[in-house]
Amino acid sequence: MAAGAASPIRRAKGEVLHDGFLRHAGFRWLKIATLICVLSIASYMLVDVTPRHNGGSWYGYAMGTIGVLLILWLTLLGLRKRAMTRGRWSLKAWTSAHVYLGLSLIVIATLHTGFQLGWNVHTLAYALMMLVILSGLFGIAVYATLPAALSNNRAEMTQVQMLDAVRAIDRQLHDAAQPLTHEQAALVRQSLEDDPFGGGLIARLSGRYPRCATARAQAALRRWTGETPDTGNDPLERIDALLERKQAMLARLRRHLKLKALLEIWLYVHVPATFALLAALTAHVVSVFFYW
C-alpha cells in the first residue's frame, strides 16, 4: 500500500478484526477450560482416595476451593461489565473466559462431589450451580443465533422509530374513522385503545397475540368490505389498508420484542440463580467447616 499519513496507532497486520466472544483469540479460553477439565478428570482417576472420592477428602477440598474461587470470579463479570474503568481490558475476553471457565465448572464441581448427592444444602448448591450453567448455555445459544435475526427484522429501523410508525398509523386511523358508523368506529377504536403488547410473558416470548384487537378489528371490518369491490374511495377500504399496515408494523415490532426478550430472559434466571447459589454456597461452606 501507499504511504499512509495515518495515525501512529496501527493495528497489527493480519489481526482478525472481529471475531465474537466464542472465537476470541483463537478459542484461547476454550483451550484453557478443556485443559483444566482434562487435568481434573485425569487427576480424579489417578488420585486414590480411600474409601472413595468425596467432598471431604483433601482432593475434594482442593476441587471445592477451585470451584468456589471460579464461581466468585465468574460473578464478577456483572461488576466488570458496569465499571468503566481505564486500562487495557476487553469485556469480550472476559465474556469468553466466563463462558468456557463456567462450563468447566460442570466437571470441577461434579468431581468435587465425588458423585455423592442427596437431599441437603450441599446438593442444593450443586443444583443451583447447574441451573445457572444451564441458563448460561441457553444464553450462549441465543447469543449465537438471534442477533442476525434481530438485525434482519428491524431493517435499519430503531425501536423508537417502529413505535413512532405505529403511532403515526394510529393517528391516520383516527382521522380516517371519522365518517364511519358507530358500530364500525367502535371496531377501529378497539384497535386504537388496545395495548398491542399486552398479554404477558408468554405472548412476549412466543410473539403470538391471539387477542390482538387490530387483527380482530380488521377481520370484523372485512364483513362489510369483503362483498364490495375496492373502488379506492371507500373510507372502509382506507381503514382496511391502514389496519393492514398497522398489523405489519406490529408484527415486526412483536418479533423485535420477542427476540430482545429471548436475548434477555435467561438473565432473569441466570442472575437471581447466581445469588441463590452464592447464598447456598455460603451455607455449604460454613456447614462443612462447622461440622469439621
Binding site: M1, R11, D19, G20, H24, G87, L91, K92, W94
Partner: peptide, 26 residues
C-alpha cells in the same frame, strides 16, 4: 483514556469494532 475506546472495550460479544477504512477495506 488508557485502554482506548470504551465502546469497544465494553462490548461483551465482540460486535463493536473500530477500524480505519484503509485497514478494513483491504
Amino acid at each position: 483514556i488508557e485502554g482506548g475506546p470504551a465502546c469497544v472495550r465494553a462490548c461483551p460479544t465482540g460486535a463493536a469494532i473500530r477500524v480505519a477504512p484503509e485497514d478494513f477495506l483491504t
